[in-house]
Structure formats: structure tokens, C-alpha cells
């Protein structure tokens, strides 16, 4: 093993336009359900790209297709210039995937898991052992290297799972909900790893349900819902298109809820979403000034507020705004 050779940085622009992942009209149905319904994506080489969406949006299905685990029903895709369907082996040679559920052997130790993968990928004898030990050290798992994985905490498991994807440096790394179920410290650790990998030139495509995670990590975000891509852009673009804040109001008089929703919609150009509590509404706003004006408009109409607050929009709220917009666009097209 030649440890001194740096990973070559590919700069040539091939027929795929230089994208690490290029997807056109990709589709997959399970029975009646269109899990992925014609998605287009282009992921630039070396970028961190996030697929953001709720459970069941089709993110995982999309990723599993790109990792050659399931065959698409329609559309085309290439990974590092290799066609997904025609050249699955070449695709597998340029990717690694860390799935949502730890793809580790619980009965084996952490070191044995990494040794197994090192040997499967062609490291022999001492080189395999050295590689496993390097990864264990880098991922802060040396102390637990000889323990069975079934005794690991969630954070340790996830670290080992990611380490397992880096036995050979992949061109593209797929991470399916890399921080779901982790505590804040473990999440931070995983974020640091993801950034370090991207800094080393690995293209990263990750799925997440957390707006904050996509915002923190990704150069570019695609919002997925019901198998469709409903928005795409940088975090900044999405925020300025949608608003980075969220106004929550609770009415003193629940009977005025429809009036209030109409006022907000007229003022902000977006639909207001009914909150969890009775007589409460929430709506995404671009700026604090806008939120201020919206509250003013409610008061001007004589709608009394029992409570109001400003905050960051939750994924739920962004979704509501996006899907409302998406449906609006579809209507405009007709």
C-alpha cells in the first residue's frame, strides 16, 4: 500500500458535464406507489449535496437506486460517468454507501468489520490490518476496536459505519440520514467528518429530515416530496426564496382564524398553516420587517393576538410553504 500517493483530483470534464452524479427522470414504483417519480439532479464533483424531505418522500429509494441496490423503472442516471444500469460494477467501484440502518456485522468486533471490508476491497495481510487500525484511530474507535459491535453506542456505530465506507476513498459517498437518532455531540462529530471528507475531495450526497443539517452542511439542497423534487438551490437561495423565519400567532378569538389566514396570505403571498394548538397559525417569512408588517396587518383588522412568536421555520413549515407553492405553480401551468 502506498500511503504517500495523494488521491488524484479529477478535473477533466467528461460527457456527463463533469458531474459526479447526474440523474434524468429517474423513477421507481413499488406496486401502486410511485416512490420516485421522475427526478432530475446534477451533483457537482466535490460538493456536499443534501436531499431534504420527510419520511417516505423517496429520498432513500433514490439513493438506493444510485448505489445500485435497486433497479430504476425509468429514467437515466450516471455516477462518475458510469451508467447506473449498464455499468453497475463500475458504479460500485466509485461509490460507498452508509445506509440508514447500520450495515455492520453486530457479532464481529469493530476491527474485524473493517478488516473484512479491507480484505474484500483488495488489501492483504498487514496492509489490511494497517488500514483497519488507521480508520479506527481516525474515528476515535481504537479503544473499542476489540469489542463486538452489538455493544457499541449509536454514535460509535455510526462512526464505524462511516469508517467502513472509507476503507478505500470513494469518489462519491452516499449517506442516508447520517445523524438520525444521534445525540447532539455525536451529530456534531459526524458533521465534522462529513466536512473533512468533502475537504478531501469526496463528493457527498446525503439525505436528511433536518433543515438545519442541510443548511449547515450542504452546498446545494434538493427538497423532495412524494417522489418529486419540489425545490433546489443553495441554502441561501432557498431561504431567500422562502423565508428564513417563521411567524407563529395565536388568536384571542378562534372564530377569526379564517380572517387571520386570509390577511397573512394577502400580506406574505404564502398560505398560512394551522398550528397544533387551536386558533394558532404559522407562516414562513423572509425578513423580520415582513413579519412585523404581518402582525401589524392583523392588528389593523382588529384581530387580537393572545400570543405571537418568531422563530426559524421547521422542516414542516418549509414543506408546507414549498408544497403550497409547488401546487400553485402546477395550477399556474394549467
Amino acid at each position: 500500500m502506498n500511503m504517500s500517493v495523494p488521491m488524484p483530483v479529477t478535473l477533466d470534464v467528461g460527457s456527463d458535464g463533469g458531474f459526479a452524479v447526474s440523474v434524468r427522470g429517474l423513477a421507481k414504483r413499488f406496486g401502486e406507489v410511485k416512490a420516485v417519480d421522475g427526478i432530475d439532479l446534477d451533483v457537482a464533483r466535490g460538493a456536499i449535496f443534501a436531499l431534504l424531505g420527510p419520511n417516505g418522500a423517496g429520498k432513500t429509494t433514490l439513493m438506493r437506486m444510485l448505489a445500485t441496490l435497486i433497479t430504476p423503472d425509468g429514467g437515466k442516471a450516471s455516477v462518475m460517468g458510469h451508467d447506473l444500469v449498464a455499468q453497475p460494477h463500475a458504479v460500485r467501484a466509485s461509490i460507498a454507501m452508509t445506509g440508514q440502518f447500520a450495515s455492520l456485522d453486530d457479532d464481529l468486533t469493530g476491527r474485524e468489520n473493517l478488516l473484512m471490508l479491507s480484505r474484500l476491497l483488495g488489501f492483504r495481510g498487514r496492509a489490511a490490518r494497517a488500514r483497519a487500525n488507521d480508520l479506527l484511530a481516525e474515528f476515535d474507535l481504537s479503544d473499542a476496536a476489540g469489542k463486538q459491535v452489538k455493544s457499541y453506542s449509536g454514535g460509535m456505530r455510526r462512526r464505524l459505519d462511516i469508517a467502513a465506507s472509507l476503507v478505500v476513498t470513494p469518489d462519491v459517498l452516499f449517506l442516508d440520514e447520517p445523524t438520525t437518532g444521534l445525540d447532539p455531540n455525536a451529530r456534531q462529530a459526524v458533521w465534522r467528518m462529513i466536512r473533512a471528507m468533502a475537504a478531501a475531495g469526496v463528493t457527498i450526497l446525503l439525505t436528511t429530515q433536518y433543515l438545519e443539517e442541510a443548511d449547515q452542511l450542504a452546498d446545494r439542497i434538493a427538497v423532495i416530496d412524494h417522489g418529486h423534487k419540489i425545490a433546489e438551490g443553495t441554502s441561501h437561495e432557498l431561504k431567500s426564496a422562502l423565508g428564513s423565519g417563521c411567524l407563529h400567532v395565536m388568536l384571542a378569538d378562534p372564530r377569526r382564524i379564517e380572517d387571520a389566514a386570509a390577511v397573512l396570505q394577502a400580506k406574505l403571498g404564502l398560505a398560512a398553516q394551522a398550528g397544533v394548538a387551536d386558533a394558532s397559525l404559522s407562516i414562513v417569512t423572509r425578513t423580520a420587517a415582513e413579519a412585523n408588517e404581518a402582525v401589524g396587518a392583523l392588528i389593523a383588522k382588529g384581530i387580537e393576538l393572545a400570543a405571537f412568536s418568531m422563530g426559524s421555520p421547521s422542516l414542516d413549515e418549509v414543506f408546507f410553504a414549498l408544497t403550497a407553492q409547488h401546487i400553485g405553480e402546477v395550477r399556474d401551468d394549467v
Binding site: P6, E138, F139, L166, V167
Partner: peptide, 11 residues
């Protein structure tokens, strides 16, 4: 971690 990510030639 960057070091470990960069240093691996595929066998």
C-alpha cells in the same frame, strides 16, 4: 481525518 481520507490508493 483529512489525512486518512487522502492517503488511500485503491489496491
Amino acid at each position: 481525518p483529512v489525512a486518512v481520507f487522502r492517503s488511500v490508493a485503491r489496491p
